[in-house]
Design a protein around this nucleic acid. Structure first.
Lengths: 360, 360
DNA sequence: AAAGCTTGCGTGTGCGCACACATTATTTTG
DNA sequence: CAAAATAATGTGTGCGCACACGCAAGCTTT
């Protein structure tokens, strides 16, 4: 393949300067005459120099503090997976002098979010990874970090207003689109398809509305039924349900399932809480209603095995955490280019392929 | 989190010996009295020493030669992806002194396989990654490598006879099982489901028969139709087709599609060549026949977009190559434990989530 | 014009480890 | 019992790089 890698020393020799000078142009530390600078750069080109990252990490005692702001994994089980992914990345990057500090906030408390984001900012980290569940409150922090030129990476929720270093997560729109396919595929008869939002502040949560748009667009683009064939086009309705402990949650669901005028074909739950809907379908013996949701939570998996949930879309939370941290490390430690958008795959999970996705 | 990492030097100090002695017990180079040895080991325990791999890679000039034996990527497009994955791994590991040499063989030529495996062996590598498509011929090589204690990793095709360091790839049985689900899901009416093997030497290719077993078992475990409900249980038939250039390929397919006594519901192609079947379905306008196959080849993707192929199962060839190389590196370079079985997920691909899987 | 700056370079040390080599203790041998 | 052999341990160098420092020459100051 290649000859033994070229070193700073080789460039120095070729350019008739010392290694110190090469180092200076390499890191733009100034104190080099333009003439020499150009010469060194030319030599680096010619020899196709690539710094030895191993040696670099060893030689520099530079350390990087990363702050992670995400919901507490002890409160909501979904957040265990990104937490683990972040931990894994932290372990691998420890040798490169990277330290990761967590700032967990309470999923539903704006104040907690603000407090932890503030704490993270105060710690003056070299980079920030954040799951910005609260749209409005996030923007102010983005602005501050931008002003202080602290690179920050978004995950789980995409906010495009201020340009972050990178976003790691799913394409919410396409994710809803896919959900449409999964809920409708193979069902020839016309009928109603439901998209259910559970305990979501829709107005302050962009990606949920994107999922709904995708879902609706899937049905909109379906070919019209053949002329003469039975059936009107599919009917899509959306419903915003409260927290499942709220009595109106059960009331609304029961009313829906009791209503014999709607031909319910499928339900798409826009969050990881499909397991809250599943018991109702089971109670009503509605095996004919397709149920699609998100994420491989234990309770979801249970209903997947019971054939109540038909498909789960895996949001790859583990990867989101892992790659989120690595995006920062790539930027800071390895000086690599970081793509501004890293869409994780929309894994389709059924009972049959589940086992290869859990516990990665 | 943790204090600054402990170094050899720290252990040496704590045990009242020199770093050289610690180094000797660390690498089992002998020349250390048992008493001191135990003491040093105890100190390492106490301080929870973990070697700094960065420094290790730098300090030792040790290099590792890896040999990869896989089908030529220029002949069959499927093999491009593992090739790329291997290349990516090679690039990342280069700094750790790992060099990867490819020994491509001709997919269908046993002699070529043997010749390249022989060449790889002759090069006396430190580790071998191999896609052992030819069952019988592989065994002899495994035995030799075992005798010479060269660690070898299998990918793509699992052979359990001799214990390799690791296998990276899919669970073929479950993969067939999943294919059954995909081909049947949502189809209430009874009928015939076909599993098609294209140009495969089934007798000498274990994983194809495993796929078929899984496929058949899926239908066997389906709940029997409700009493009084219409329909006999699904009928599964298998067919071994020759190379598509062979005139009998077209003849057999045409006969099958012309036969009006079979209610064909779906076809599962056990290899990546679903695109060879798709044109026939298209010509016969059999949109009702579900088609499921493997891998994101350009031609398959084409028919996925045309709605002729309904699902593709992604074998993750890129990951197979990447992780295969890393399994060897983990063993040799990083002295990590390597799991003997690394099942890659069975990704379900549709038109809607395709884009996030191509070009990873 | 002497004392400061600034610029443009070279030198030296250390990061944690591997490994060759030097040195000192302990046996073995003639 | 001294000499030789061997076992046990210590020392030193280099891997490629970052970074602090040193040093000379030209340039301002007052």
């Amino acid at each position: 393949m290649e000859k033994s890698a070229v070193r700073i020393k080789d460039i120095a020799a070729k350019a008739n300067v010392s290694v110190g000078t090469v180092d200076r142009v390499l890191h733009n530390r100034g104190r080099v005459s333009e003439k020499v600078r150009q010469k060194v750069l030319r030599m680096m080109e010619e020899l196709d120099y690539e710094p030895n990252l191993i040696a670099r990490a060893l030689g520099s005692n530079r350390t990087y503090q990363l702050a992670v702001v995400q919901p507490d994994h002890l409160i909501d089980p979904y957040w265990q997976a990104p937490w683990d992914g972040i931990g894994k990345a932290a372990k691998e990057l420890k040798q490169y002098g990277v330290t990761v500090t967590m700032y967990p906030y309470e999923l539903t408390e704006v104040a907690s979010f603000v407090a932890q984001a503030e704490a993270a900012t105060q710690s003056a980290p070299d980079g920030i990874l954040i799951a910005p569940l609260f749209y409005r409150e996030s923007l102010a922090f983005f602005a501050r970090w931008q002003a202080e030129s602290i690179p920050y990476v978004l995950f789980n929720t995409y906010i495009a207003e201020l340009p972050a270093l990178s976003y790691v997560g799913q394409d919410s729109y396409q994710s809803g689109f896919l959900a449409g396919k999964l809920v409708q595929f193979g069902q020839a008869e016309p009928g109603t398809y439901l998209i259910a939002h559970i305990a979501e502040d829709i107005a302050n949560s962009l990606h949920v509305t994107q999922k709904e748009r995708g879902f609706r667009d899937y049905f909109a683009q379906l070919p019209a039924p053949a002329p003469g064939a039975p059936g009107a086009p599919a009917n899509v309705v959306s419903i915003a349900l409260p927290d499942p402990t709220d009595p109106s949650f059960a009331r609304q669901l029961n009313r829906l399932l009791d209503d014999e005028t709607v031909q319910l074909r499928g339900i798409f739950v826009s969050t990881s809480k499909a397991y809250e809907i599943a018991p109702y379908l089971q109670a009503y013996h509605r095996e004919d209603v397709r149920l699609v949701g998100y994420d491989l939570l234990e309770k979801n998996i249970h209903f997947l095995h019971e054939n109540v949930i038909d498909f789960l879309i895996n949001q790859n939370p583990h990867e989101q955490g892992y790659q989120g941290v690595f995006a920062l490390a790539d930027q800071l430690v390895f000086k690599k280019e970081v793509p501004p958008l890293k869409y994780l795959p929309l894994d389709i999970i059924t009972k049959e392929n589940l086992r290869y996705y859990v516990g990665e």
